[in-house]
């Protein structure tokens, strides 16, 4: 309760400081609009304009890319865990790929797919595949061998062993991979959307720039941050914490 109060005060002071800075500094609104202008951009954007459709289409893109990435990533991870030769060759390459920011893939994607949704989905897959592949690989390699032996000695084998032990033992590490992957996908989505046509959060942001509508730009940046925070921290963070608790990995 006390923390909530401190936080509310912090944001009120922030807005006050922002307001005073603009009033006293005589800042033009295409450089930095007043808080009220941003709020009205939110209001018109959501209730009369295209913000809702933009968010909808962005979410569709990111979900398509994300789930395709999960499929590809998990299969890659399993292959890397099983085949040593693949791991020391392709596995190394993946680590190098991970240090390339998603925006660096944009020119390549645009040349291959044009300024379409496919280009964005491609960039998302490239980015989101890596964390899932790596965490699947590690999750498989880190299963305590005695857990599998214990299961076998109790009569578990084949499908029963896979369903009740191997997959279960992998889950905590997999969930971490899923969260990381989502964070990557979300960043890649915005990077890609800046360059393509159609409706989306990135496009709306880019439109704001070309119309010198700084209120819209700030409104979209805020939207990206809020959705990212809610999904990454609240949704995935909660799942991760619950799984770690259920698996007895978190200190109580």
């Amino acid at each position: 309760m006390k923390i909530t109060l401190i936080r509310v005060t912090f944001y009120l002071l922030l807005f006050l400081f922002w307001y005073l800075f603009i009033k006293l500094g005589n800042i033009p609104s295409y450089i930095l609009p007043a808080p009220i202008e941003v709020l009205s951009s939110f209001y018109y954007g959501f209730f009369k304009g295209s913000y809702c459709t933009a968010i909808f289409f962005s979410l569709v893109r990111v979900l398509i890319g994300y789930f395709l990435a999960l499929g590809v990533g998990m299969i890659t991870g399993i292959l890397l865990a099983r085949y040593y030769l693949l791991d020391i060759t392709f596995g190394r390459t993946i680590l190098a790929l991970q240090s390339i920011p998603s925006v660096a893939w944009v020119p390549l994607a645009l040349l291959w797919f044009g300024i379409t949704d496919n280009a964005v989905v491609f960039i998302i897959i490239l980015e989101a595949v890596l964390p899932v592949a790596l965490s699947t690989k590690n999750a498989m390699k880190n299963i305590p061998p005695n857990l599998i032996r214990a299961a076998q000695t109790l009569g578990s084998k084949g499908l029963h062993l896979y369903r009740n032990v191997i997959i279960k033992a992998m889950i905590p590490e997999l969930v971490t991979g899923l969260r990381l992957s989502w964070a990557f996908a979300w960043r890649a989505l915005i990077a890609g959307e800046l360059f393509i046509s159609g409706s989306g959060i990135g496009q709306t942001l880019e439109l704001g720039r070309s119309l010198a509508d700084m209120s819209q730009v700030i409104a979209m940046i805020t939207t990206i941050g809020v959705i990212g925070f809610l999904t990454e921290n609240l949704f995935f963070g909660t799942i991760e914490r619950r799984v770690r608790n259920a698996w007895g990995l978190e200190g109580r």
Binding site: P144, N146, L147, R149, A150, A151, Q152, T153, L154, G155, K157, V165, K168, A169, I171, A246, W247, G248, L249
Partner: peptide, 19 residues
């Protein structure tokens, strides 16, 4: 031939299923 529940093994590190 292979592991079977007619011969069960207990480990030093317990190997209980944490989930």
């Amino acid at each position: 031939q292979r592991p079977n529940s007619s011969r069960t093994l207990v480990f030093q590190d317990y190997a209980l299923f944490p989930w």
